[in-house]
């Protein structure tokens, strides 16, 4: 669990706060394309979950994918989605969305990557999927930080960091 420190100023407080997100407060995020600035910091888009009859209702993330909520023994463990602020890199804005369930990051995807020219596309088609995988792996694998990829990695890190910030860091 400590591996999540990779992204955060203080692991412990992140996890505690994420765990405290038992109940669901449904809020919808309107935008599907998100030219975010920090002024547009987002409330978490919580996946509506009910324990009545053991049914769960899936929520929808801004880009249309769904995330499951689960119930166990009456305790609601909803997955929640946080959108990071767009981080400016030399190639343009990079923005990341993180889904958290039961205090762990279950998925991360990129909402915005610079696609201005073919060179950038090439960079991002290589770089972004790598780090998408890395976010999840980082909790069980050995890697705390990465050396090697300039700019895009950092944009991603910063954006993810701001996503975690919005999870009340």
């Amino acid at each position: 669990m400590r591996r999540i420190t990779l992204w955060a100023l203080s692991t412990v407080s992140v996890l505690v706060l994420l765990f405290s997100y038992h109940t669901s407060t449904s809020s919808t995020l309107a935008a599907s394309t998100m030219p975010l600035t920090s002024a547009q910091a987002l409330a978490p888009t919580t996946k509506k979950t009910t324990s009545a009859g053991g049914t769960t209702t899936d929520g929808t993330t801004p880009d249309g994918t769904t995330t499951d909520g689960t119930t166990t023994n009456g305790t609601v463990s909803a997955s929640q989605t946080f959108d990071g602020d767009a981080a400016m890199t030399r190639y343009g804005p990079v923005q990341v969305q993180v889904t958290v369930a039961g205090g762990t990051v279950t998925s991360a995807q990129t909402l915005q990557v610079p696609m201005e020219d073919r060179h950038d596309q090439q960079i991002n088609s290589q770089a972004v999927p790598v780090y998408n995988g890395e976010v999840i792996d980082a909790q069980s694998a050995q890697i705390d930080v990465m050396s090697g990829a300039t700019v895009t990695w950092e944009g991603y890190t910063q954006s993810l960091q701001s996503a975690l910030d919005q999870a009340h860091l």
Binding site: Q142, I143, G148, A149
Partner: peptide, 12 residues
């Protein structure tokens, strides 16, 4: 800190 160094030939 476990520092990963990216494989320049396969960035995954």
């Amino acid at each position: 800190w476990q520092v990963g160094v990216e494989d320049p030939g396969d960035r995954t």
